[in-house]
Simulated scan of single mutants.
Amino acid sequence: MSRRPRTARAFALLGLLTVLSATGATAPAAGNGATPAGAVRPAAAPRLGDCATGQLCLWPQADFKGTRGTHELAGLDIESCVPLPAGTTAVALANRTGRPVTTYQSAKCAETGEFETYPGSGTWAPQSPYQVRAFKVWEN
């Protein structure tokens, strides 16, 4: 089963989230700026988590909350499965490695579970659709 269409949609959505988060933009107000009765105003985009160039940063809670774990590109084997420490998972991530990173629901990088690839040009994902248990960094 090919995951490319879903990954392409994820790239587009993540790009939009990154732009909205970085600029602090919100949806434009209707009419005179008042919210119509019964309408719900969209929530502000989450604040981006701190993550330095060359790092993959992972957080245990959505919206970049909890204790951040970092992985330096210099210390990773390219195209090797890197499981998170036993008993830990990540929900939010920032990929600043400069290379594509695939996150896996499986701690063994098995493609039988869920997985997504995030571009390395500076992608912030405030909430993964699954608990991340492992990842792989790819060549460009």
Rank of each mutant, 00 (worst) to 15 (best):
W138C: 02
E139Y: 05
L48Q: 06
R6N: 12
L14G: 11
G113L: 14
G54R: 09
A74S: 14
P100N: 12
Q127C: 02
P46T: 10
L48C: 05
T97M: 09
F64W: 05
A74I: 14
A107E: 03
S128Y: 04
P85G: 02
T102A: 07
C57F: 05
R41C: 02
S80M: 10
L73C: 04
W138V: 04
T97N: 04
W59P: 00
G33I: 11
C57N: 04
A25Q: 09
P42T: 08
C109I: 03
T18R: 13
M1K: 15
L56C: 02
A134Y: 00
T23L: 05
E139M: 06
F64P: 00
P46Q: 08
T53Y: 10
C57T: 08
S106R: 03
A44T: 11
P36E: 03
A45N: 01
S21E: 13
I78K: 11
K65R: 15
P42R: 06
T70K: 13
T112N: 07
C51F: 02
E79A: 15
G69T: 15
Q105L: 11
L84P: 00
A94D: 07
A74H: 09
T35I: 15
L16P: 03
Q61N: 10
P5D: 11
L93E: 02
A107I: 10
A74E: 12
M1G: 13
L13W: 15
A62P: 04
A37N: 08
R41P: 00
T7L: 06
T67P: 09
A12L: 14
C81Y: 03
N32M: 08
G38F: 10
Q127V: 13
S128L: 12
C109P: 00
Y130L: 04
E111T: 13
L93V: 12
G38W: 10
F11D: 11
Q131T: 05
G120A: 07
H71R: 14
V82R: 05
F115A: 04
T112L: 08
N32D: 15
L14K: 03
V19D: 03
M1D: 14
R133E: 03
G69Q: 15
V19M: 07
A52T: 12
T88H: 12
S106F: 07
G33S: 06
R6T: 14
P129H: 11
N95V: 12
G75F: 08
C109S: 01
L58R: 02
A29G: 14
M1W: 15
G120W: 08
E111C: 01
Y118C: 00
F115G: 00
S121Q: 14
R41Q: 10
F64T: 02
N140Y: 09
A30P: 01
